[in-house]
Amino acid sequence: MTKSEKNLQAKRISFSYMTYEKNSGLLGSLHDFVHRRKRAVHAIHDISFSINSGEIVGLLGPNGAGKTTLIKLMTGILPVNEGKIDAFSGINPFEKSSAYLKRIGVMFGQKSQLIWDLPPIDTLIMLREIYQIPKPVFEKRLSFFTKQLAVSEQLQIPVRKLSLGQRIKFELICAIIHYPEILFLDEPTIGIDVSSQSNIYRFLREINKERKMTIILTSHNTKDIVALAQRVIIIAKGEKIFDGTPNALISEHASQQIIEVTTDSPIEPLPIDLIELGDCHYQFLSNDSAQLPIALAHILSLKRRDGDLDEILVGLFSKLEGKK
């Protein structure tokens, strides 16, 4: 498989669903019982992209931007309303064909595929049978994965007795035990300590390099994106607003240097372009305002520095929030 081969292609896809708004209080509840106010949510709107084999793509966006919905569309959990998703040149993910499901691996940080009452090894043996992995190959892989992620000793312990971090590591092993061609990771480092995070990053980079495994991940932890992603797609309010490398994202917003301000008292109300970092400690993008958004008399210190990905995203997202 060549590096330029397309694994996934989304052509002008849109997805919307119906939800309802619930009134509060007794009267509201009674009203809802008789008449429910429905509302259409346009979760994804006219998004196009293609992902090549072996790429590591990070999906970023504020809460409710549509990242997880996009993953659900790509994996085939949800059907697109408009447009088309084409996987491996000709497969429609929503058909959930065995041919497609065998080639993908999915890990949702907040959903578990481990059997709660049994040790992880039982779930893994079940996956070995489902994906028809020869026993010696399975054992070799399992030994390698558990060693890399430092969970060899927890294989026989019931899942309910494991820590969150250990469970997440086993979830990851479950997602890759069959060496999928595309690995979808939704919040892969949720609840994981810093040293385990770096373990996971190293491990994922290694299998991406060795197996040319395409990795598509969403995370609120920008460390995940910085450590792994070769490409970033930013989604906001269901629309794609950026598609490029993390460096391109930083350089595109490099002109927006960060000004950190310490004041003598809390600022209330907080101006829209000001972000609170701590007690009397704020920051804003230097080109957001021609003037300081704080009265000079309250400023104790000022510091200017270049923004990192985290800050660029915070600035970008708060701008989008302001436009709402």
Partner: peptide, 13 residues
């Protein structure tokens, strides 16, 4: 309700 059906739907079974 929990959305965990998603995990089962993505297995080739």
């Amino acid at each position: 309700r929990s959305g965990n059906l998603t995990i089962l739907l993505l297995r080739p079974v």
